[in-house]
Deep mutational scan, measured.
Amino acid sequence: SADYSSLTVVQLKDLLTKRNLSVGGLKNELVQRLIKDDEESKGE
Rank of each mutant, 00 (worst) to 15 (best):
S41E: 08
E40S: 12
G43T: 12
G25R: 01
L30P: 00
D14A: 14
S1Y: 14
Q11S: 05
V23N: 07
K27W: 08
K36C: 09
K36R: 11
K27C: 05
N28D: 15
L21Y: 01
Q11A: 07
Q32C: 10
N28L: 09
V31M: 07
N28F: 13
V23W: 06
K27L: 07
D38F: 04
E40F: 09
V9T: 08
Q11F: 04
L26Y: 08
E40C: 11
L34T: 01
D14F: 13
D38N: 04
S6P: 04
K42L: 11
S41A: 12
Q11R: 05
G25A: 03
E39F: 09
S22W: 08
L16W: 00
K42Q: 11
A2N: 12
S6Q: 12
L21V: 02
E39A: 11
R33N: 03
L30G: 00
R33G: 02
R33I: 05
R19P: 02
D3L: 11
N20T: 05
L15F: 04
Y4S: 00
E39L: 14
I35S: 06
K27V: 06
L16A: 04
Y4H: 01
L26W: 07
S5G: 10
A2I: 15
R33L: 05
D37G: 05
K18I: 09
S22L: 07
S1C: 09
K27T: 05
V23G: 06
Q11I: 06
L26G: 15
Q11V: 06
S41Q: 14
K18D: 07
V23K: 07
I35H: 07
L21F: 01
R19T: 02
T8N: 07
G25C: 02
S5H: 14
S41W: 10
V10I: 12
N20F: 07
T8H: 05
D37C: 06
S5K: 09
L7M: 14
S41V: 08
L12P: 00
G25I: 01
Y4N: 00
E44R: 12
L26I: 09
L21H: 03
N20I: 02
L12A: 00
L16F: 01
K18S: 09
G43A: 13
L15G: 00
S6F: 08
T17G: 08
R33H: 03
L30R: 00
G24H: 15
S41Y: 08
R33F: 04
L30T: 01
L34C: 02
N20P: 01
G25K: 01
V31F: 02
E29C: 06
N28Q: 12
Q32N: 13
G25H: 02
L34Q: 00
L26E: 15
D38W: 04
D37H: 12
R33S: 03
L34V: 02
L21W: 01
L21A: 02
S22K: 09
L15M: 08
E29H: 06
N28H: 15
T8W: 02
L16R: 00
N28W: 15
I35E: 08
K42I: 09
T17N: 10
Q32W: 08
Q32R: 08
L15D: 03
S1M: 13
S5A: 13
G43Y: 12
I35M: 11
S41G: 10
E39M: 13
V23S: 09
S22Q: 08
L16Q: 01
Q32A: 13
L12H: 00
D14T: 10
E39R: 10
G24S: 15
L34D: 02
G43H: 13
T17W: 09
Y4A: 01
G24P: 03
G25V: 01
L16P: 00
K27P: 06
S6A: 11
V10W: 12
T8K: 05
K18W: 06
L34E: 02
Q32V: 07
Q11C: 06
L34R: 00
L7T: 00
V23E: 06
L30E: 01
L15R: 04
Y4C: 04
D37L: 04
R19L: 04
I35G: 03
L34M: 02
R19M: 03
T17H: 12
V10D: 15
V10M: 14
S6E: 09
D14W: 15
S22I: 06
D3A: 10
S1D: 09
S1H: 13
T8A: 05
L12N: 00
K18N: 08
D3T: 09
T17I: 12
S41P: 08
R19W: 03
L30A: 01
S6N: 11
D14P: 01
K27I: 07
S5F: 14
V10Q: 15
D37T: 04
N20R: 08
T8C: 06
S41M: 12
E39I: 12
V10F: 09
N20W: 05
K36W: 09
S6L: 12
K36F: 07
K36A: 11
D14M: 13
K42V: 10
D37S: 11
T8D: 07
L16S: 02
S1V: 13
V31Q: 04
S22G: 08
S41H: 14
D37R: 04
G24D: 15
E40I: 11
E44A: 13
S41I: 10
E40T: 11
V9F: 07
S41D: 08
E40G: 09
S5Y: 15
D37A: 11
L26M: 11
L7H: 04
L26N: 15
L16K: 00
Y4G: 00
L12D: 00
L30N: 00
K42R: 13
K13P: 00
K27M: 06
L16D: 01
E44C: 11
L12I: 05
E44L: 14
D14K: 13
V9K: 06
K27A: 05
T8I: 02
G25Y: 02
S22V: 06
L34I: 04
S1W: 14
E39H: 09
G24W: 12
L26T: 15
E39G: 07
E29R: 04
K42C: 06
V9Q: 05
D38Q: 04
R19D: 02
K13Q: 11
V9W: 06
K13F: 05
E40L: 13
L34K: 00
L21Q: 04
L12V: 02
S6V: 09
S5R: 09
E39C: 09
S22A: 11
L7D: 00
D3R: 11
Q11Y: 04
L30Q: 03
V31P: 02
K13G: 03
